[in-house]
Design a protein around this nucleic acid. Structure first.
Lengths: 205, 205
DNA sequence: TTGTGTGAAAGTTTTCACAGCA
DNA sequence: TGCTGTGAAAACTTTCACACAA
């Protein structure tokens, strides 16, 4: 198949495989089979193999996948083989938690700038980052930051997104509970934790 | 069609429609067409209509949907018409932010208990909730709590999940970066914010 | 008119089954 | 013998086009 018409669901699963590979590496394992991997991530083994097959043949018949090699390949596909500089906008409860979150590091993300509009926060150092005035957002461009996290109140999210686009940001992870509109070339994922909680009751007896 | 073979994607979208209806209500609107709704949520108008049609005919031809009525219907489908009592396990950076998050309220969720293992936190009041010792988890059953949020470190998540299941919890929203295994009757959604950030670079030029 | 509700077609994703390499 | 890689079938989801009700 090799690199055409890749299901978006496959792309969604790739980071999950990568996360599992990190865990296996920490356990000093060196190889893993598709069925071994399938147990960790709760995806069928044929689905695992199919997902990888869209990009090439990474495994060895009879023994499985080399963990380091597979992790390298997935990182490359996801463009995580180079580190990414990320900005955070909104240093409230959620924003601060995101700043402190250690889970971004293994994927090569560095939060290098944080912005807020609250004068009490501007200039303060939070989890190692000095909070800047939100009016300085345009400075992102010269800092070569192309990803941003939005953790501002719902009412400000759309406006902030537009400023981020103007400042050259190409991808946005939006934590505010609202769909934000941006030009098609910009990619946005929205995480609304209430949305996920809201569909739990449907599934419970 | 009426209530059989409902796409899980439809269920995923229902809370998004509900969120949009809340916004419209705050704007004092009383009716909305499928195309009006489609603009807010970024879903095609025929998809909106199709999604509702799985459950019945809620609209009026010529004028659209009554906002209050539609919100009531969706709430009922999602079983959000009664309020839900929710427990939080893990009151670290992320857990505290979740406790402070105002976005659960409109969907009828009340976080009524919080647990941690850190003796420095136990007994303290955080965002209005007194943190209890994690060894008291079994008390959930008599408190009629059937939903839980897990915001503990990765290494503790599986064990906490098992304790929650023993305590009678039926649905779990897991913020730890690991797939957790539970009996099939229990529903788990995992939100790993690093996973979503990790697929952004793939999509940007 | 305007905008819903819905079968049928098109498109996408998962599952299967097995050939074939180490 | 064990496990990968992959066409083809099955299942699922979206899109279309239009009948029909207010």
């Amino acid at each position: 198949m090799r690199y055409r018409n890749i299901p978006s669901e496959t792309i969604r699963r790739l980071p999950i495989y990568l996360r599992a590979l990190h865990i296996l590496k920490r356990q000093n394992k060196t190889t893993i089979s598709s069925s071994g991997l399938s147990e960790i991530v709760a995806v069928n083994s044929w689905q695992v193999r199919k997902d990888f097959s869209y990009f090439g043949a990474f495994g060895k018949r009879g023994s499985g996948y080399d963990i380091d090699e597979l992790a390298k390949q997935i990182s490359k596909i996801l463009k995580l083989h180079t580190r990414h500089r990320v900005a955070l906008v909104g240093v409230g409860n959620l924003g601060s938690a995101v700043l402190a979150y250690p889970g971004f590091e293994p994927y090569g993300f560095d939060i290098v700038a944080a912005y807020d509009s609250d004068p009490k926060k501007i200039g303060k150092k939070i989890h190692g980052i000095t909070v800047e005035n939100i009016s300085e957002l345009r400075g992102l461009r010269k800092d070569k930051i192309d990803l941003a996290l939005i953790a501002v109140p719902e009412s400000a999210a759309q406006q902030i997104a537009e400023q981020l686009v103007k400042a050259g940001v190409k991808g946005i992870l939006n934590f505010s509970p609202r769909h934000i509109q941006v030009p098609k070339r910009i990619k946005v994922f929205t995480i609304d934790i209430a949305m996920d909680l809201a569909r739990l009751p449907f599934y419970i007896a």
